[in-house]
């Protein structure tokens, strides 16, 4: 029974990792930027989620509002911060991104206070019994269902629509895509919008599971998501999903069984280093 519980914990955590890391992979696949400030968008999503829920009482509305606002902020971030740096060496954008992330964390602290916010009437409390003696919280179920839903829609869009084709064309070869009439600028905006919106959903969901948003809630995702996209093979969407799930489950089991030797982060990064030594291109990456 413990195994099943740990497995489910791992899958819930993995789903959240997937939602966060996917946006990062989208950005990396298109622009080759390690977008640390993505985690700040995740936190922003959490704040908007809690504030809108408290004002209107509707979680669905909160998720929608968070997606739209954070998506737009993501596009603005690309326009103001990254676009001018695309021709520079990659670590310039990386440091700029880290600086943005730190600044955002400070702004959250200054604007919303250091102790964070909670839901006044936390939605989706309680849970249901899957099999005798094993409960799943409604919140956790929502995380898994929403992740599957969003990722399938995304998979469908990228595989079967005109939009998806132009996106994939831009990733493979921007110049060629432009020559064939794809507006690569729009693809980049859309890319940042979708990636940031996904981070916002993850932020609202994490806020729901913990019933708390705080200025520092993005600090673990900021580096963990980088580890995940590298583990999956930079820019590979399927790799990112696989890596998210593996890491979620490994952390969930690892903290119980070898937690006295290594903490959660060390476990994740230890696994990452071992994998990279055998597969330097990541799990599903190509050279």
């Amino acid at each position: 029974m413990l195994y099943l519980e740990l497995l489910f914990q791992g899958i819930v955590q993995g789903s959240i990792y997937a939602l966060i890391a996917l946006g990062l992979t989208l950005v990396y696949g298109l622009l080759r930027i390690l977008h640390v400030a993505h985690a700040a968008l995740f936190t922003l999503g959490g704040y908007i989620g809690v504030i809108v829920t408290n004002q209107t009482g509707s979680l669905a509305l909160a998720i929608l509002a968070a997606m739209i606002v954070v998506g737009l902020v993501g596009v603005a971030m690309y326009k103001l911060a990254y676009e001018p740096l695309l021709s520079k060496p990659p670590f310039i954008a990386l440091i700029a991104s880290i600086a943005l992330f730190i600044a955002a964390e400070e702004l959250f602290r200054i604007i919303f206070g250091p102790y964070g916010l909670s839901y006044e009437n936390p939605p989706l409390q309680g849970g249901f019994e899957i099999i005798s003696g094993f409960f799943l919280k409604y919140g956790e179920a929502l995380v898994i269902i929403l992740s599957i839903l969003i990722l399938s829609v995304l998979g469908w869009v990228s595989g079967y629509t005109r939009l998806g084709v132009s996106w994939r064309a831009t990733v493979t070869d921007p110049d060629m895509a432009r020559a064939f009439g794809v507006n690569t600028q729009h693809v980049r905006y859309l890319n940042f919008f979708i990636g940031s919106a996904l981070a916002a959903v993850a932020g609202v969901l994490v806020a729901l599971l913990n019933n708390l948003v705080e200025p520092t809630m993005g600090s673990v995702p900021s580096y963990k998501a980088l580890a995940i996209i590298v583990l999956g093979g930079l820019g590979s969407i399927r790799g990112t999903l696989l890596a998210s799930m593996i890491l979620g489950v490994i952390e969930s089991f690892g903290t119980i069984y070898i937690g006295h030797l290594l903490d959660r982060d060390a476990l994740a990064f230890g696994f990452l280093i071992v994998v990279l030594m055998f597969r330097p291109q990541g799990l599903l990456g190509t050279r």
Partner: peptide, 22 residues
């Protein structure tokens, strides 16, 4: 010698988390 560029960046980041964790 095994990993390069962004992969190396994240590997070295892993080293610091392993160090602190241990």
């Amino acid at each position: 010698l095994r990993v390069r560029h962004d992969f190396l960046a994240i590997t070295t980041m892993g080293v610091v988390f392993l160090f602190v964790g241990v």
